[in-house]
């Protein structure tokens, strides 16, 4: 029968061995803890419709500096708990007095959560390839629950978005998305992400977002007819070649969607 909406306290099962994330056991019976969608593939899990990001070890996130102490940058990471980045976790040695010139209050960075202790003290690190301050592009904020939707099945959505908009995309687990590309492309991408968040429950979402981006590009082409016809044809053929792996991933997506029924 698949998945359905459940509410807190709703009875789910008589067998406590099915209890998964978002459920609790009372007197050997399983009940829901959250308002969200029930997923009963292996165990019973409830995925909430909303909620705050709760930091967990090894997550990649995007944070913003809110305070600088003599030895720490303190980051706001979209959760009830702030993150601490010790100067020793910066890739180079940094003098306490130079901290501001590297990252000042209001700057953002892509960070890895090194550790979270029981008091929810969040330790961050930048000592890893791919991490570092963000100096260009834009940051979009979405609900952390929607992150899997923007990534898609095995990354199908994110690879389609990257191809279609020619933007670089990084999705933090805390629901912050960093994008970089041409201004127009970033506008399109931002709108596409907005569409994903709003219609995340619609089947065949990747296809729909693909169509949305296609349409937008058509509109843009009509608006600026300066590119010669040949160039356009060339661009289209190139596009088609590039789309091949993309097409496959979308097919996979649709297959998965139908299989879910």
């Amino acid at each position: 029968m698949g998945r359905k909406i459940v509410i807190p306290g709703q009875f789910l099962s008589d067998d406590e061995k099915y209890a998964g994330m978002g459920t609790y056991v009372k007197n050997g019976k399983v009940y829901s803890l959250l308002y969200g969608i029930l997923n009963d593939k292996n165990k019973l899990t409830v995925v909430p419709f909303s909620g705050k990001y709760i930091p967990s070890r090894r997550d990649l996130i995007i944070g913003t500096v809110i305070l600088i102490t003599p030895s720490n940058w303190i980051f706001e990471i979209g959760s009830p708990y702030d993150g601490l980045l010790h100067v020793s976790e910066y890739p180079r040695r940094v003098e306490s007095s130079k901290m501001r010139s590297i990252m000042d209050v209001g700057d953002s960075a892509i960070l890895r959560i090194k550790d979270v202790n029981t008091n929810m003290k969040v330790e961050l690190t930048l000592r890893e390839r791919g991490l570092g301050p963000i100096n260009d592009g834009r940051i979009i904020e979405i609900m952390p629950m929607k992150v899997p939707r923007v990534i898609g099945h095995s990354g199908s959505m994110i690879s389609m978005l990257t191809k279609e908009t020619n933007c670089e995309i990084f999705i933090g687990q805390n629901g912050r998305i960093w994008i970089k590309g041409k201004d127009g492309d970033m506008d399109d991408l931002a709108k596409a992400i907005d569409l994903i968040v709003r219609e995340s429950h619609v089947p065949g979402l990747t296809e729909k977002v693909f169509q949305f981006l296609e349409n937008r590009r058509d509109v843009e082409r009509e608006l600026e007819p300066d590119g010669s016809l040949e160039n356009e044809l060339d661009a289209q053929t190139v596009d088609k070649n590039e789309e091949m792996p993309d097409e496959t991933s979308r097919k996979i997506d649709m297959l998965l969607d139908t299989a879910d029924d």
């Binding site: 698949g2 998945r3 997923n39 593939k41 995925v47 791919g130 629950m145 990354g155």
Partner: peptide, 23 residues
Amino acid sequence: LAEETEPEPEVEFDEETTDEEVA
């Protein structure tokens, strides 16, 4: 609507690796 949301342990693992790739 039941089509929504997938995050099972395996899928979450996929996402992580995807993220790393992207990073």
